[in-house]
Every structure is written in structure tokens, then in C-alpha cells.
């Protein structure tokens, strides 16, 4: 079992490496200053990579020294469930982004309100529909009528 520190070190290494690949693809021009557009990005990339390696190495040494596999299991306890629950909420957000242009803001936000409430453990019933419609009406009033934001209308283009 890997410790959270080790995973964070690896993640930093991975991000740093990917970033560096793109940083080295930045074009240079004869008109550039001596540092150029790629100078600092490359420095940041190498720094992140190095720090990631340091964190991962430190975590590994700590793990080998203490040899506490049980503690590591406890450290990750419940995290998988948290990721799944968070993923569900995120999926609702993604569905909203995908559907708001077609459905229109009033319907999409009402559905979002109802979906999130149900997902978070509210009991199904007519009150959920009421909260969805009431909440959507309130947000419509605030954003469209008061703040004058041009929300996607979709099916509600007639409004």
C-alpha cells in the first residue's frame, strides 16, 4: 500500500513531466528576450519534477523505516467511497454543462437542483420538484432579471 505522500510525489512528477514536454515545444524567435517564453515554464517543470521525486523518495524511506502497512491501510480508509461520491456529483455538473444549451437554463438548473438534492440523500417526493422549480425561479430572477446575464435559453427561447 502506498502512502498519500508517495502518491502526491508521483503525481507531481507526472504533472511536471507532461508540462515539460509541452514547455520544450514552445517556439523560440530571434526577437525573444534571453529567457524567452519557454524559460520560466521549463524551470517550473524541472522544479516540480524534482520536488515530486523528493516527496516520493522521502515517503518511501519513511515507509521502509517504519514498516507500518496497517497504518497505510487506515490512511486510505474510506477514500475510495469519497472519490466515487464526488465523482457522482461531478457527473451531475458535467451533465448540466452538456445539456444547458439544449434544455435551456431554467429547466437545466431545476433538474440540477433536484438531482443534487436527491443524490445527497433527500427523500424523493413532490417537495423535490417544488425545490427544483422554486430554486430555478429564484436563480432566474437573480441572474437574468436582476443582473441581466444572458443565460442559454434552449427550449425556453420564447421567453
Amino acid at each position: 500500500m502506498l502512502s498519500r505522500d508517495f502518491v502526491s510525489g508521483l503525481a507531481a512528477v507526472l504533472i511536471g513531466a507532461v508540462y515539460l514536454v509541452f514547455a520544450y515545444q514552445l517556439r523560440t524567435s530571434a526577437l525573444d528576450d534571453s529567457v524567452g517564453p519557454g524559460g520560466l515554464p521549463r524551470t517550473y517543470g524541472w522544479l516540480l519534477l524534482t520536488l515530486g521525486l523528493l516527496i516520493a523518495a522521502g515517503a518511501l524511506i519513511k515507509q521502509i523505516r517504519s514498516g507500518t502497512a496497517l497504518d497505510l491501510k487506515l490512511e486510505w480508509k474510506g477514500q475510495g467511497r469519497r472519490i466515487v461520491w464526488a465523482g457522482g456529483l461531478l457527473a451531475i455538473g458535467i451533465c448540466y454543462i452538456a445539456g444547458v444549451s439544449t434544455l435551456g437554463y431554467p429547466l437545466a438548473i431545476a433538474l440540477l437542483l433536484a438531482a443534487v438534492a436527491l443524490y445527497q440523500g433527500a427523500r424523493p417526493g413532490l417537495h423535490i420538484a417544488a425545490i427544483g422549480i422554486g430554486g430555478a425561479a429564484f436563480l432566474w430572477a437573480v441572474f437574468v432579471l436582476v443582473l441581466g446575464v444572458s443565460m442559454p435559453m434552449g427550449l425556453f427561447a420564447f421567453l
Binding site: 440540477l112 443534487v116 425545490i131 430554486g135 436563480l139 437573480v142 441572474f143
Partner: peptide, 27 residues
């Protein structure tokens, strides 16, 4: 109840961010 508050906050965040540049990319 927490579910209703979470739902409202999520809706507020999505509406608020969209209102900045009217951009789904921002969301």
C-alpha cells in the same frame, strides 16, 4: 437539511461562473 443547501450552492456556483463570460468553457 444539507442536501438542499448543497444543491443550491452547486447551482449558485454554476450560474455565477457562467455569468462572468457567458462561457460553458469556464464552467
Amino acid at each position: 437539511p444539507r442536501p438542499y443547501l448543497s444543491a443550491f450552492i452547486f447551482a449558485l456556483i454554476l450560474s455565477g461562473i457562467y455569468s462572468i463570460h457567458a462561457s460553458l468553457f469556464d464552467l
